[in-house]
């Protein structure tokens, strides 16, 4: 549906709904923190961003033109590869998958003994992989400053050879 509909407004709504849906799925897979973030960020902030962008640019999409063969080809190729790759993966929920036995026990006991907060996700986020979180802040800052830089000349006008920086 997201692919087909040409009015962008319902598309955005649908994608927001999709985000919420995926958040629900995350809960069912025990990832409550992720679900929470996805609901807030993916379904919330992103939708707001989309809506404001649409309000600035117009909501009607033109019918797509051009061949669909190449995208479809890429798509099937990609799907085939991914399926080939997942075929050898440990089955869903397998407790003995290498990912669950290599470092995990240490994280869990570490959280219990060294950090002392119950949420393991938070403990890893804030301590073991705290630097990632710092980087994440960097990413947000980049995005904020970038959007600011891109949109600071708010009113629409033609941007042609406006040379001469130091006026």
């Amino acid at each position: 549906m997201i692919i087909r509909i040409q009015n962008l407004f319902p598309v955005v709504m649908l994608s927001g709904a999709f985000s919420l849906l995926s958040a629900a799925l995350f809960v069912s897979m025990d990832a409550v923190d992720v679900a929470f973030t996805e609901a807030a960020v993916g379904a919330g902030i992103a939708t707001v961003l989309y809506l404001s962008a649409i309000s600035l640019t117009g909501a009607i999409e033109k019918p797509p033109s051009g061949s669909r063969a190449i995208p479809l080809l890429v798509m099937t190729g990609l799907a085939a590869m991914l399926l080939y790759g997942t075929a050898d993966m440990p089955a869903y929920g397998d407790a003995n998958a290498p990912a669950h036995i290599h470092l995990m026990p240490e994280y869990i006991t570490g959280t219990r003994t060294q950090i002392g907060i119950p949420n393991i996700v938070s403990s890893i986020l804030a301590s073991y992989r705290g630097f990632d979180t710092l980087g994440e802040t960097g990413v947000i800052f980049t995005a904020g400053a970038g959007v600011l830089l891109l949109l600071r000349r708010g009113r629409p006008r033609r941007e042609l050879a406006n040379q001469g920086g130091n006026e």
Binding site: G135, G138, A143, G146, L149, L150, E159, A161
Partner: peptide, 20 residues
Amino acid sequence: VFLEIFSLSSYVLVAMGAGS
């Protein structure tokens, strides 16, 4: 994560060529 910091900022930097 660092790759994204670098990439996001370079997208913006490239777009700054829009002045001319």
